[in-house]
Design a protein around this nucleic acid. Structure first.
Length: 288
DNA sequence: CTTGGGTCCTGTGCGC
DNA sequence: TGCGCACAGGACCCAA
């Protein structure tokens, strides 16, 4: 499901229930995710107090007072759902009774000290969790190779120029590379390239520096707007608090094949093209 | 090193 | 209504 704006939205939604709170118990209902959950994860989480929730690219990080950091990746279909005793909770599962039933794909359930229940649900199980020493969290195999945060100070046109130099791969493919820039996925790559007026298939290393500046700006603008909208909601996905993100209504090209290009004065038609198994969207008229 | 393709898994929506 | 198939927001792994 989630790209950077959705993960950031999840982080903000989880913070009230998790940040500064102690985990009373951690129930592991299914350990075989993308990678097996770490040894004795339930015991290592139980009793630990969580610090401030953080995000790096598409990863959520929850530092614990045990000295370990809980690392979470939602994969394609992963969700973090917060259920509170008095409140309700969106599907799957319910939390109305004293003996709540777990949803079908609820793999990890955290009972928080404050009474909230935090559930990791992931139908496709492409998501993952890991525990890693906090003082070496940057050396985690999944984090060590990540590129800069697109909304941080290290990301700009100059960075793209360095990363793209000599590369003949389509710019679309390199923007999806988390080692070049952390957090973009299929949606926001299409959106950013359209906003920047750059064709997805263009060889990355042959894009003029000035246009890379524009691309960097487009990435930041698209991500910022998406975060402000609470991320995008496709299908039945919801935010941690059950509300819906609404950025999908602002998509310029994603999922809009056949629709007119939203650019003022452009009479192009959005098209859908499949590269290496992934669908991308662009306007052949105003993206060059 | 770079590049492209296959793969993991389940659910959903569409056309017939 | 049922069935089969394409497709889904990720990213690793491997062959060329």
């Amino acid at each position: 499901m989630p790209e950077l704006p959705e993960v950031e939205t999840v982080r903000r939604g989880l913070a009230p229930a998790m940040a500064g709170q102690r985990i009373l118990t951690a129930e592991i209902r299914r350990p075989d995710l993308r990678w097996p959950l770490p040894e004795a994860m339930g015991a290592r989480l139980s009793g630990a107090r969580i610090g401030a929730l953080e995000r790096r690219g598409k990863y959520l990080l929850a530092p614990l007072d045990s000295g370990e950091t809980l690392l979470i990746h939602l994969g394609m279909s992963g969700r973090m759902v917060v259920a509170t005793p008095g409140g309700d909770r969106d599907a799957p599962g319910r939390f109305h009774n004293a003996a709540p039933a777990a949803g079908k794909h609820d793999h990890v359930i955290l009972e928080m000290e404050g009474g909230a229940r935090v559930i990791f649900n992931d139908a496709r199980r492409f998501g993952s969790m890991d525990l890693w020493p906090a003082d070496r969290i940057g050396a985690h195999p999944r984090l060590a190779g990540l590129g800069p945060e697109p909304l941080g100070p290290d990301f700009d046109g100059a960075h793209l120029a360095r990363a793209f130099a000599g590369r003949r791969a389509p710019v679309r493919a390199l923007l999806l590379d988390q080692g070049i820039i952390a957090g973009l996925g299929n949606i926001y790559v299409s959106e950013s390239l359209h906003l920047a007026g750059i064709a997805p298939a263009r060889a990355a290393g042959r894009i003029a520096r000035r246009r890379l500046d524009r691309l960097a700006d487009a990435v930041r603008d698209v991500l910022s707007a998406a975060i402000a909208a609470g991320g995008a909601t496709l299908r039945d996905h919801r935010r941690a608090d059950g509300t819906l993100g609404y950025f999908q209504h602002d998509f310029r090209v994603y999922g809009r094949a056949g629709a007119p290009c939203p650019c003022p004065g452009c009479d192009g038609t959005i098209r859908r093209r499949v590269h290496s198994g992934r669908a991308g969207y662009d306007c052949p008229r105003c993206q060059r």
